[in-house]
Design a protein around this nucleic acid. Sequence first.
DNA 1: ACAAAAGTGTTGACTTTACACCCATGG
DNA 2: CCATGGGTGTAAAGTCAACACTTTTGT
Lengths: 224, 224
Amino acid sequence: MEIKNPLYFNQGIHVIASIFTVEKGIVKVLLVRRCNEPFKDKWALPGGALYNNEDLDDGLKRELKEKTGITNIDLELCNVFGKVNRSNIMRMVGISYLGVIDNERVSILNKTQKTSDADWFAIDNIPDLAYDHNEIIKDSLEKLKESIVNSNILRTLFPNGFTIPEIQKTYEAILNKNFDRRNFRRKLLSLGLIYDTNKEINFEGKKPAKLYKFKEEISNKNVL
Amino acid sequence: MEIKNPLYFNQGIHVIASIFTVEKGIVKVLLVRRCNEPFKDKWALPGGALYNNEDLDDGLKRELKEKTGITNIDLELCNVFGKVNRSNIMRMVGISYLGVIDNERVSILNKTQKTSDADWFAIDNIPDLAYDHNEIIKDSLEKLKESIVNSNILRTLFPNGFTIPEIQKTYEAILNKNFDRRNFRRKLLSLGLIYDTNKEINFEGKKPAKLYKFKEEISNKNVL
DNA sequence: ACAAAAGTGTTGACTTTACACCCATGG
DNA sequence: CCATGGGTGTAAAGTCAACACTTTTGT
């Protein structure tokens, strides 16, 4: 079917991913450098235009893989951006997603990119981005904060386990807020989402810390 | 700019509103009967295709007004539906919104419609709808449940005030769950969102009940 | 031996839950 | 006068917040 009514002419959908990680207490977001117009050479969130023949989720995964090499990541819907002029080429509605990825995969990243460049930026040091992506990051960060207290989205940050002081620092970095060590530990353990591996590792302190892991179950509510 | 790549050809955006009300303990959703193809004469959620020259929010408001006559209603983003074949005419991504409207406006409704018909349907008695709207309603209902405990979305249900047993029944109807009268009252009052108007009305009981109203402030978190 | 971070327990404040009685009105 | 739902208080249980000392290791 051909669309003739100019009211409906040339609309498209952007899928956009805000992917965060936390390294040494610094919250970072993944950006790619654009190699095409518009906004050529500007940094942007990974994403792009949805194809006609793919489901929205699939388009998101495809774009993410093309631009960053990342596959196998859980993403959740974050928001929709629908100002008329958010894209200057044609009418594009942007749909933003949120994800978290572990430090291991950060290093793999640079070898698999298709974009001219991809890198992590500390969230208080984001350059001027393409489109409305600065706004999208800010919005996604808010959602990330909600998500780490309402769901265990951080599980993906620690595929090899974590110590409690370590994950506490991660919560503190994202929420910009400190917790009492004893209460944090008690609360986290009481949720029943993690278990003691009976291993110990040195994270930061001199005394080795116990290594915990998330249980496999998909229980997903009310962390903290 | 003319789009030639068939991968990006003829995409559009549906804005879709799930508008709920509660009457006598029955949760209802607003549906309209379609007067055009596709799905002519089928019931559907109010909404339609976004114009090129309007912001997403504006398109939503316009569609809602055209199809139901409703203006001045708060809507929040609910979800995005992006299966390739959710529309059989052309590729449409659906963006769904959630709102609640008071009983007063229910009656006004039928006089202002542009659609061939508009009516409220109890949520356990929804007919087979156009597109994926049955799925959207189900999804929106889940979100409604979350919203009434995490925000005071129900404020709009009672523009002329309410008694505490009355609003309790509303919560119970939506959440499908009963609360202890005394504890419900205490909790609701302790939130500081409502005030006693010093009027009394007969709602259901034999003893007149106090009339409360929501305060004007826009405070929006952690109800119940 | 000491510095630095890990680990642990208790108490008081607060919140939530459970529960029983009296009150005002309409029939 | 009685049936119906509205309004109130209290005690026990549970959760949350604050807080200080001991343990293990590297230097």
